[in-house]
């Protein structure tokens, strides 16, 4: 447990920096804006207490908001993603549940499980985010297209990162 803390803090800063410095500057054909920072919420240990999970989700969103001038948007989407994580974990739990000492990684539960886990939370996050942004005007379907294209790119990056960072 003592080892987990600095590692997660480090991951928090690295992901915020990558998001702000690299991915916020990427805009493919006006539709695709990947938001990979939610990987931080996905990778938190199973034992993370509820209050900490919510607070971290909130702080993560707020940090992104401050650096990309979108006060509120990412905070709302990110807090919601953190809130829903335990429920999603419940729904897709393997038959014998989550064993002690395991972490939500491809390594422990396989690619299919991780993909399902990441996909549900990423799509929820992107739907909330893009519809808050578009709040004032119509364009329901073009926003939906943006949600799904961006989700696809975010997911690909998240899943790929698992293979790059956690090589055996």
């Amino acid at each position: 447990m003592t080892k987990l803390l600095p590692r997660n803090i480090f991951r928090f800063f690295v992901l915020v920096l990558i998001q702000v410095l690299i991915f916020n500057n990427i805009q493919l054909s006006g539709y695709i804006n990947p938001y990979i920072y939610i990987l931080f919420i996905l990778l938190l240990p199973f034992e993370t207490p509820g209050w900490l999970l919510l607070l971290l989700g909130f702080l993560l969103g707020l940090s992104i908001d401050i650096f990309s001038d979108t006060l509120g948007m990412h905070t709302i989407a990110s807090t919601l993603t953190a809130f829903l994580r335990p429920f999603v974990l419940d729904i897709i739990a393997p038959h014998d549940g989550y064993e002690m000492g395991t972490k939500p990684r491809v390594l422990y539960f396989g690619l299919a499980w991780f993909f399902k886990y990441a996909a549900i939370l990423t799509i929820i996050h992107h739907i909330v985010l893009f519809y808050i942004e578009i709040f004032h005007f119509g364009g329901f379907f073009s926003t939906l297209l943006r949600v799904f294209l961006s989700s696809a790119v975010t997911l690909s990056i998240i899943v790929l990162s698992q293979f790059i960072v956690y090589r055996q």
Binding site: L54, L55, F58, G72, T75, I76, T79, L80
Partner: peptide
């Protein structure tokens, strides 16, 4: 407490968002 904390944090987020849209959001 889990749901209550969620509602509290989410309300803060919404307050920040709404204040920014009605007033000059650039102020914030």
């Amino acid at each position: 407490y889990y749901a209550l904390l969620f509602i509290l944090l989410e309300s803060i987020g919404i307050v920040i968002l709404v204040r920014n849209n009605t007033y000059q959001r650039t102020r914030f």
